[in-house]
Design a protein around this nucleic acid. Structure first.
Lengths: 195, 195
DNA sequence: GGAAAAATTTGATCCACATCAAATTTTGTG
DNA sequence: CACAAAATTTGATGTGGATCAAATTTTTCC
């Protein structure tokens, strides 16, 4: 399927954890399906059990859910090497609460839950990769949490801007405002006073 | 050290993931140290690299950090089977940002990072346990995050009260207020209008 | 290229919750 | 027990950011 396995879009990511050309390595790639999503398309519809884990190879997606007033709240952005899946739904089998939308043309590779479970069972290296990826996201979330309460809208914007300058001019500000827990108007005013 | 391994305070927890009386099971218990902390005591001081993972056996601890104005922000509570460690510091080797304080007399068992790494390397079952524990906390945090922004102070209180009634009358309200992202006064007024 | 749609800005007003201050109740301790 | 310290409540006032309403700019796409 891929002549040179090393050239698969996910190789660089996996290689951080699993040595190439081992059994654990080779077992993975044949299990992947490739997907393309147009800008605006949904990777998975809401309220449906979700059994594929999508790795982003190209593009940016946002995770969002609907609050009690049916406003869309953006909770995460995923770029290359990120995951475009409601992780809770995928791991627990519960229905999707989060929807994932392509914000640019999006290219993903997905693996079915059963196949991933199989990898976990068969290869210690995959358990390890799973542990480390979970750890990575856990720590990222702890940091995001920290003081989302404590910081002013201004501070949250400044930190996000420093970290993710590349997203501005690529995706609409309304999603960034939502992710940062403020209205579009507040974000606009913060950016105006900057200039 | 423990005559009947099954009676160790962590047995019930570990048993969910690892079958008793296997090599992976037996390897664990001799690596633990027991600790006692008095009410108010710190499990680990801030800004010091932290190399032991503490499992709570008895009591309640809080995780907190200092914001830019040197206010203590409570970010998590740990009861029995919970972890009383700055997980980020423990896993990455970075200095502690979070401090952990015993809110009641606290009993923990701790394992050194090197020994845990050893278990991970030696036993697939431990990699698996690590993966699942990470997954569990990740999902818990995703749920906490969800809409901490979106919900009113009132809603956050109601949900927390339903989930953790046992903490009220056990620990001071100021820590709960901080965890819920509101002032002590606001929490008090919410509780007053309830009655 | 030009009209429609989407995104962004700007302005006026409002409110949930913070802040500051003090009284009251509860808890811990010599 | 007593009293000092800590916790909680209650009151008065202030404010960051929400909400509502348009105007303006940018993007999309026929």
């Amino acid at each position: 399927m891929f002549k040179a396995m090393e050239s698969h879009p996910l190789s660089a990511f996996i290689q951080q954890f699993i040595p190439p050309n081992t059994a654990a390595w080779d077992a993975f790639f044949p299990l992947l399906s490739a997907h393309q999503f147009a800008k605006g398309e949904l990777v998975a519809p809401a309220h449906v059990p979700c059994d594929r884990l999508h790795f982003v190879a190209q593009g940016v997606a946002r995770h969002f859910f609907l609050d009690q007033d049916h406003n869309e709240i953006t909770s995460w952005f995923s770029g290359p090497s990120g995951l475009a899946t409601d992780y809770r739904a995928f791991t627990t089998g519960a229905p999707n609460i989060f929807e994932i939308q392509a914000l640019t043309p999006l290219e993903t590779y997905s693996i079915h839950r059963d196949n991933l479970d199989q990898l976990y069972r068969q290869y210690k290296e995959w358990e390890r990769l799973g542990r480390i990826v979970n750890q990575f996201y856990l720590i990222a979330l702890i940091e995001r949490n920290n003081g989302m309460f404590v910081k002013t809208a201004r501070q949250r914007y400044d930190e996000f801007y420093d970290q993710h300058r590349e997203l501005f001019n690529l995706i609409p500000l309304k999603y960034i405002a939502s992710y940062l827990g403020m209205t579009l108007e507040t974000l606009s005013r913060i950016r105006a006073e900057q200039r």
